[in-house]
């Protein structure tokens, strides 16, 4: 990660801590004698995070070596995961999981090492097997979606 990216992450943590600190200050102070109350720990740890994040931001202003690591593929898969999550209640587990698996493997397998038959078999077979294990064996109800499974 570049220095500016690390600085952005530290700034994000600082902003998160500041928001938490402001919200923690609004927690009603309801407590018995001796008890510091429900707002004490959130205020203390949010302040600690804020101080630490600001210190990290200052630290990032100093030059240090940084190795460039690839991340573009992770961005695509991350976006695919969010799409899978959004489709899950609409299409149901089996269809959305099959779409996610096939789509993500096509995205990652740019050299097409996996044949279409294997991809289809794994992409459909794995969600079906999981659906059977969870729904039938463990009695865990998975999102059904419009198709009913």
């Amino acid at each position: 990660m570049t220095r500016s990216s690390r600085l952005a992450v530290a700034a994000f943590i600082a902003a998160f801590a500041l928001l938490a600190l402001l919200l923690a200050g609004q927690i009603p102070s309801r407590h018995v004698k001796g008890d510091p109350g429900p707002q004490a720990l959130p205020i203390a740890v949010a302040a600690l995070v804020l101080i630490g994040a600001v210190a990290a931001m200052i630290g990032e202003t100093r030059p240090r070596s940084s190795g460039a690591e690839p991340w573009q593929q992770a961005l695509g898969i991350g976006a695919g995961t969010v799409a899978f999550l959004l489709l899950l209640p609409v299409l149901g587990f089996v269809i959305s999981a099959a779409l996610f698996l096939i789509g993500a493997s096509l995205y990652l397998d740019s050299r097409r090492r996996i044949g279409p038959a294997t991809r289809l078999l794994t992409g459909v077979g794995f969600p079906l097997a999981l659906w059977w294990i969870f729904s039938r064996l463990l009695d865990v109800s998975l999102p059904r979606g419009l198709m009913g499974f």
Binding site: T81, L88, F100, L101, I114, L130
Partner: peptide, 19 residues
Amino acid sequence: PPTLMPPLVILLSVLGAYA
């Protein structure tokens, strides 16, 4: 297949959390 591993792990993770 190796390129299926990350999506499979994500699928198991989402399913595990949901369950």
